[in-house]
Amino acid sequence: MAYYQRKISIYPYPRLRTSLVLILTLFFLNMGCSSEENQTLSNPNTLAAGQNSAVGQQSKTLHIAVIPIQSSQAQAKQLKILDEYLEKTIRRKFNIHVQPDYDTAINLLVTEQVQIAYLGSLSYVKAKQKNPNIEPILAPINKATGRPWHTSMIIANSAHIKSVKDLTNKRFGFVSKSSTTGFLIPWVELFKKEEIDPDKTFSEVQFLGSHDQALEALIADEVDAVAVQQEAYFKAQSENKLPQAKYVKIWESSPLPTDPIVISSKLDQKLIYSLKKALIDAPNAIVSVSGAEIVGYTLVDDMNYEPIRQLQTKLDENTPN
């Protein structure tokens, strides 16, 4: 099988027996654990104290790294709006940049060159393993589900593929090895449930960099099927880029935690508080850096991403070096 290097070659993957549904149970049980802090953030007396204390901390610029999710031009426009909102609300200077790939965003946060990052679930887990002084604080609430979870999907050109069984000898596109919905989950689910060996099944594998780029490659007929997050698929559909007569969803995962906003725990706690408050109170059109439709943010912590950590651990245990 040819591995196309825009990208990173992928490795043989032994069968996993971990139940995705079982380990995700922990995620859903834990989503209710932050309700008390949510109530605190909505208390006007407490909020005033937190907001005022952060106003005095204006000496340093806060740097934010963002993983590439949509086209660079669209994402840059959205980040400019977010930058202006945060600077006005928190009264601090912000420097927000989309990074060229997932791993660059991870490394910037791990090495503390940035203090805040918009990461995927798997990229957060990888970053936490390298630097324990980071933590997730918020995750978006998906408009489609009304909850802080989404799914991974495999979208295919229906002229060549009608179901997962038709993937043999086809060209397949992932997003990044650090992408949850664009790599980890579909890879595990493909092998575990359908017993597909990518080395023997696909004629070519590409890693395409972002969810938008993966769908663009599918539309351009550079690949026959791609794994992407639910939001990217819905967004492309709403823009009439994926007509139902030509493209078909052939697989969808179990629910997964949405991508977190991650911070260095070395930041002043009052500043962290103000950041949470600002983003929870922000208009929906401002806070969505991915272009996906969301209905706000909810508080999360490390335990919300334990299911992803368990899957990644199982993957690493069964992958040869």
Rank of each mutant, 00 (worst) to 15 (best):
V248N: 09
K249E: 13
K249I: 01
K249F: 01
K249Y: 00
I250A: 09
W251I: 02
W251S: 05
W251R: 01
W251C: 06
E252R: 07
E252V: 08
E252I: 10
S253K: 00
S253D: 01
S254M: 05
S254H: 07
S254P: 06
S254W: 02
S254N: 11
P255M: 02
P255C: 02
P255I: 01
L256H: 00
L256P: 00
L256W: 00
L256E: 00
L256N: 00
P257V: 09
P257Q: 09
P257L: 11
P257G: 12
P257M: 08
T258K: 03
T258L: 10
T258G: 15
D259S: 15
D259C: 07
D259A: 15
D259P: 12
P260E: 03
P260K: 01
I261Y: 05
I261T: 12
I261S: 04
I261L: 15
V262A: 03
S264V: 00
S264Q: 03
S265I: 12
K266E: 14
K266P: 14
L267A: 05
L267R: 04
D268C: 12
D268T: 11
Q269Y: 11
Q269H: 14
Q269T: 14
Q269N: 15
Q269L: 13
K270N: 13
K270L: 11
K270Q: 09
K270Y: 05
K270V: 05
L271W: 04
L271N: 06
L271I: 10
L271E: 13
I272D: 09
I272H: 07
Y273Q: 14
S274E: 08
S274L: 01
L275G: 12
K276N: 10
K277P: 06
K277W: 07
K277V: 13
A278S: 11
L279R: 03
L279P: 13
I280Y: 02
I280G: 05
I280H: 02
D281N: 12
A282E: 05
A282M: 09
P283C: 05
N284I: 10
N284Y: 14
A285D: 14
A285K: 09
A285R: 04
I286E: 12
I286A: 11
I286P: 13
